[in-house]
């Protein structure tokens, strides 16, 4: 079953999600990669606060273009590897009341703790599905730090519609990544020891 969610998202909605749930997300979200996360932890800027409250951070460095009217458009915008934000993520979630993080590859124990403590989840997007996800971005509302950080690292405030996601770390400490790693490691060990 597919669950439809729209930002702003309540803590109750988030705590109802469990790993393996398929979600279609709509509403306003914010892209942020390495430089943006560092800034949010070190300087706690106010400009991004209203967009992040009860909303979602998306680990993404998009390909963008300007249309003939001078408006930004997303061309290709799949997720990037989330592990790089592990040192910052939990602090960002707490500081800005974030309800979810979108990326790929999952995150570590510090983030899992933060998700549990503050009531947030990790959503996994389909890596490589750049064009499809860009088509689900209906509008670019604003961009911050574009000059300073460059296109991939800027904060892009975007409105999405039916962004396809899977919950892989929930607000109760469960992680699909941990489960699959344990299961596949056991199978790998058996295969390796088979000595064919």
């Amino acid at each position: 079953m597919t669950i439809k969610l729209k930002t702003p998202i309540s803590e109750e909605e988030i705590r109802n999600l469990k790993i393996g749930d398929t979600v279609l997300l709509s509403g306003v979200i914010v892209t942020a990669r390495d430089q943006a996360h560092k800034l949010m932890v070190e300087e706690k800027p106010e400009f991004i606060r209203p967009y992040l409250k009860e909303s979602v951070v998306y680990h993404c460095g998009p390909v963008v273009r300007k249309d003939e009217n001078g408006n930004w458009q997303f061309v290709s915008a799949g997720p990037t590897t989330s592990a790089r934000e592990e040192p910052y993520q939990s602090i960002v979630i707490g500081e800005y009341n974030v309800r979810g993080v979108i990326g790929k590859g999952g995150m570590g124990p510090k983030t899992a703790e933060g998700l549990k403590k503050y009531g947030a989840v990790y959503f996994h997007a389909v890596g490589g599905a750049g064009t499809l996800i860009a088509n689900r971005v209906k509008r670019v509302l604003d961009v911050f730090k574009l000059e300073e950080f460059g296109t991939p690292e800027a904060f892009w405030v975007i409105e999405v519609e039916d962004f396809p996601l899977v919950v892989t770390v929930d607000a109760h400490g469960n992680s699909m990544h941990k489960e699959i790693l344990e299961k596949s490691s056991k199978i790998a060990e058996e295969l390796i020891n088979k000595n064919v």
Partner: peptide, 25 residues
Amino acid sequence: KNVFATILENVKLARKQSTPICQDT
């Protein structure tokens, strides 16, 4: 199953629109 459906739709869209399959080119 859902991932493969998304991947296949993405591949068709990228070809039709002539836009990058993945943003990491």
